[in-house]
Every structure is written in structure tokens, then in C-alpha cells.
Design a binder for these strands. Structure first.
Lengths: 107, 107
DNA sequence: ACATCGTATAACCTTTTGGTTATATGATAA
DNA sequence: TTATCATATAACCAAAAGGTTATACGATGT
């Protein structure tokens, strides 16, 4: 299942996304940034791949990862829309209230 | 621990936030919007309260919930900053590259 | 006074999450 | 060719997440 919220809910995955947004990095380079084991980070990478947020490129014994910026951007846009609408609801309510002619009613 | 990402990672909680952003609602009104049990929704509400995203107000046998818009806004701002910076990194890189005088170097 | 309604809580279950260690495999450097 | 390095994978574990049913409790309508 595709779940952007799940992907970004973990701080290690968010940091990983930041790291691979600067440049393509190998798995061991990434591991060096955390205090977790290589298999543990591999699982985080697997989740990011599963959510289609990063690419994996094999070159010899190295494995390079980088951000799929367009995909991340699309998901981020949707998230902004969803969360943004939660914030805007009150404004919409206020707008509706002002536009209706019930200004004399209570509360 | 305060974790906005955790709070918004569940679709039921996101929908709950939307619902209580329109108007103050009772627990049973909220439950009616989902196909989960009352104790299950209660747990979601407890998490939203724990993350300080909603208020709980008791009135007789009713319990009203509503969005703490300012708190939600602050967390949302931070999230936007964090995720937004992931997207901007490439632009920053390009800017740095152009500003430095290493334009003749490879890759 | 009593039934009912809204909420709270306990006990329990399954699946997911996030980690570990041990070990295998495949590419490369000496 | 042999040791080493980077990655993959299996087996395991504890805790968290998300749900259930049963039941208790307090407020309210009849």
C-alpha cells in the first residue's frame, strides 16, 4: 500500500530523504549518518523504495540511493492540500458567515 | 513525546481533525462517522489530545472535542519547513554551483 | 426509581514497526 | 587466491499500533 504519511513518520527516514536529496549516496555512507545497524537502515530504505520515494542503483558492490523528487513533490502537494484544508475550515466558515445575512443571530 | 507526524499518520485521525475543525463535536457524533468501535475512536482521540491537537470539554454526559487550530498550525508550519527543505535542496545546490566559480569542473 | 444513553476502562488479540545478531554472497583490492 | 568490503537476508525480539468485546459508571429522560 502506498502511504506517504507512513514513509515520513520516522525521523530516520526523513533524515535519509534529506541526505539523498543533496546527492546520490551509497548505503554505507547513509549508515554512517546514524547509530543503527546496516540491516536496520536497509529496512528504512526498503520502505522508502516501496513508497517510490527513492531510487536504488547498483554499481559493483556499491548501492546508490537518491530522492525521486517529482514523486516526493506530488505526495507533498497532496499532503499540503489535505492538512491545509483542515486549517482553512474556520476561515471558510467565517467567510460563509459573513456572506450570509444572519449576522444578527447568536453565536 | 510530542510527535505531530505520528498524530497525522492515521487516516482516521486526519478525518477526525477535519471533522472537529468545522465545529465542536461529541464523541458519539464522531464515532458515527467511522466504522470502528467507540473505544477504538476514544484511543485516537486520546492520541490527538496527547499531541495537544484537540481540546476535550465535558458537559453533562456529553464530551465535546474541537481542533486547537493554533497548535495545529504551528506543527504544520514546522512540517512544511522540514519537508519543503528536502525539495529545495536541489535548487540550493544549483544556486551554490552557479555562485561558485567552478563552472568548468566536471559533473 | 429505573432504563437508557454517552463515555470510560480493562483485558485481550493481531499486526506492524523498528531494532538486533549472525551469516551468506558477490565484488574488489592486495 | 585470499582477505576484505558492501550489501542482503534470515531469525529473532520487544514495543507500539489499532482493533475488539465486556463491563462499569454517571447523567438524563420517563
Amino acid at each position: 500500500m502506498t502511504d506517504f504519511y507512513r514513509a515520513i513518520s520516522d525521523p530516520i527516514r526523513r533524515r535519509t530523504l534529506t541526505l539523498v536529496s543533496h546527492k546520490e549516496l551509497t548505503q554505507s555512507e547513509l549508515v554512517a549518518n546514524f547509530s543503527i545497524s546496516q540491516p536496520a537502515l536497509k529496512k528504512h530504505l526498503a520502505i522508502l523504495i516501496e513508497e517510490n520515494l527513492i531510487t536504488e542503483r547498483r554499481d559493483g558492490r556499491y548501492c546508490f540511493y537518491r530522492l525521486k523528487r517529482e514523486v516526493f513533490y506530488d505526495h507533498y502537494q497532496k499532503l499540503q492540500h489535505e492538512l491545509g484544508s483542515i486549517l482553512e475550515n474556520k476561515l471558510v466558515k467565517l467567510k460563509d458567515y459573513l456572506e450570509e445575512d444572519n449576522n444578527g443571530e447568536s453565536h
